[in-house]
Design a protein around this nucleic acid. Structure first.
Lengths: 203, 203
DNA sequence: CTACTAATGGAACTTGAGTCCCGATAAGGA
DNA sequence: TCCTTATCGGGACTCAAGTTCCATTAGTAG
């Protein structure tokens, strides 16, 4: 029956193994930022991370798997959210945070590269979905509170509202290339707010 | 001064050269659909297209440039849009079209691969922006008409409304992995409509 | 502290993507 | 029709990504 071989690095994850992972993930992130996903060779990662080439191929095996591990690592680091007590302000804060992240020279390139990875590799795709599920849930609380307070229709799906804020910003980043500035953040927040109030996300 | 060397295939674009381009673009699209952007080797494309390897490397040079050429080819094939005389129905039709395209086994994979290409290569990124500019303009007319008819506030930016329909659908496709069905199309159209009516895209 | 073995990493090897050279072919103008 | 040369394509070559083998190192349980 199932032999259930433990994944590489899971039996003795302390000391050296942890240092190797940290070093490789840092090198991977740097490469993704500077050269993009298509330039993610495991051989070069090993050189930059000062780690044996064999180790990288054995533990991660493919650029997609490495990107997936990086995404899981990022998802594990949670960020605090705002709580102004007013939906419009909360959504605006969220939109500003997304714009700030996507226009940041390092973060913006990193996100683009990780989305590229998710489009090329199924493991990375699953990790990306997990990542956004975590990030959206972190902010969904604001909306749930707003529904409690009667600012939005009862039955409004909080996650859909938060996703509704990010959607136009990512569309600008990935599809149209439109400028992501303060005004774009404002429009994104107002779009989600108008739709939520109209009951688009009820049920 | 500028010698202005014409690009490969521009001086004698007829006959053989055209056949080679057609054959290579078809092979590229097939490979993108079946294996994704990261598997786009020019050597394999040459084999599949039954064209000399040297030719492909000389004319396109990189997977990104090949993807860019494919995007320009796609942008040149325009699609008809609906004209029901009612904004809500027009936006709904547009949303359904996007969902149909993105969930189509071939088209959906192709779009994902081309977006991946645009995230890895600057030429492909510019071509993708041109492509979406064309597609959005094709539909912007509906919204302009609606503004004329008084269905939407004066000064509403038609392109932003159309982009507002697609945004949540692409966000579901690329970020959250949420199901793209008839209901998702409905919500996308209603979101854009609510925001447009609220005047989010005026000015 | 000691034993066991998971995990690392050096070195040699294989394979195929990408480059270069040059003759063959055919597009397009005279 | 003929001529010029843009474009194609076969074949040899290079170099590094990815694989395999095995000796060495160092977690972790006892």
């Amino acid at each position: 029956m199932a032999d259930d071989v433990p994944p590489r690095g899971a039996v003795r994850p302390g000391g050296r193994t942890a240092r190797v992972r940290e070093s490789v993930l840092r090198a991977a992130a740097d490469t993704l930022v500077e050269k993009g996903f298509d330039a993610l060779d495991l051989a070069e990662i090993a050189r930059v991370a000062e780690v044996g080439k064999t180790t990288v191929y054995r533990r991660w095996g493919s650029p997609g798997a490495l990107a997936a591990d990086l995404l899981d690592d990022m998802a594990a680091q949670s960020l605090p959210r705002s709580r102004t007590g007013n939906v419009r302000d909360d959504l605006r804060e969220n939109a500003r945070l997304v714009v700030r992240t996507l226009t940041d020279p390092r973060q913006g390139r990193l996100f683009k590269a990780l989305i590229a990875a998710s489009l090329c590799d199924e493991q990375a795709a699953m990790a990306l979905r997990r990542f956004y599920a975590v990030r959206i849930d972190e902010w969904a609380g604001c909306v749930a509170d707003a529904v409690e307070r009667g600012e939005l229709p009862p039955g409004t799906d909080p996650r859909r509202v938060i996703a509704g804020v990010s959607a136009p910003l990512y569309y600008a980043l990935l599809n149209t290339g439109e400028l992501l500035d303060e005004a774009a953040a404002e429009r994104a927040a107002e779009t989600a707010l108008a739709a939520a109030r109209a009951g688009v996300w009820v049920g």
